[in-house]
């Protein structure tokens, strides 16, 4: 009965959504002269950043990214707070079965490569598709692999916390430096260099590297916390 009602409601809702989004008018009315072209234009001419998405994420809409980083930080803190236990209550790692020797040997082999790949992705965030979030996530998967493969692999919570804090502080500090040097928060106050050089785009790569560190630390922390949770 309940399912029937829900299906009926969803059918009505889906009908409205379809009417809204599948209508050709939805596209026709689009104002293509919005902010898009400006961004594409200025990314090359002023920011000297090859990846427009990165330019938008870090510079044009850098404030959003700051908020986003805060959300991640909050999520990590919230996880710690919600699953909070006194220190001596922390349980063993919950893994279903011990890893086979192939996995443990292989993961040791592959771990540095993953870290390297992650670092590469976030260092080249302003040139190639990728960036701090993506690179950070890749690094975190490396740690996840190690945590699954080795029962005794452990990461110091304090170290993670320090990395996370410093990365966050670095982000805000660069923002404030922009505020002091250029008059607005997160302003790109460093020389922008030449397009497609590794060192170009001013503060954009710097901030993205910080974001990469932060995301990596936070995701690793999240994984670590959940893995140590007894059901």
């Amino acid at each position: 009965m309940k399912k029937a009602i829900v299906i009926f409601l969803l059918a009505v809702f889906g009908f409205f959504l379809a009417v809204t989004f599948l209508d050709p008018d939805f596209e026709a009315e689009r104002n293509h002269n919005g902010v898009k072209n400006f961004y594409l234009d200025k990314t090359v001419s002023q920011l000297k950043t090859a990846n427009t998405v990165t330019a938008i994420v870090v510079n044009f809409r850098g404030f959003d990214t700051l908020g986003e980083v805060t959300v991640l930080f909050l999520a990590a803190t919230a996880l710690g707070s919600i699953l909070f236990k006194k220190r001596h209550h922390i349980g063993d790692r919950t893994v279903l079965m011990p890893a086979s020797s192939i996995v443990s040997a292989g993961s040791k082999l592959i771990f540095p490569a993953i870290i390297l790949l992650g670092a590469y992705v976030f260092i080249h965030g302003h040139l190639t598709p990728g960036g701090g979030f993506q690179g950070g996530t890749i690094i975190a998967t490396g740690f996840l692999l190690m945590l699954i493969a080795y029962r005794d692999f452990s990461i110091s919570h304090n170290v993670l916390s320090v990395i996370e804090s410093f990365a966050g502080i670095g982000f805000v500090t660069f923002g404030l430096l922009g505020f002091m040097n250029g008059g607005t928060f997160l302003q790109n106050f460093m020389g922008t260099g030449v397009l497609n050089d590794l060192i170009s785009g001013g503060v954009i790569p710097v901030i993205y590297i910080l974001v990469g560190f932060k995301v990596a630390a936070e995701l690793t922390g999240l994984i670590y916390t959940i893995l140590h949770e007894k059901g």
Partner: peptide
């Protein structure tokens, strides 16, 4: 490029919310 930048933000936020939700489920 704007929707792509937005979706990056949205994904990360969604991830954060999911993490909190899972921890609540454990509780």
């Amino acid at each position: 490029p704007v929707p792509q930048a937005l979706v990056l933000t949205a994904i990360v936020i969604g991830f954060g919310v999911t993490a909190v939700a899972l921890s609540l489920v454990i509780r």
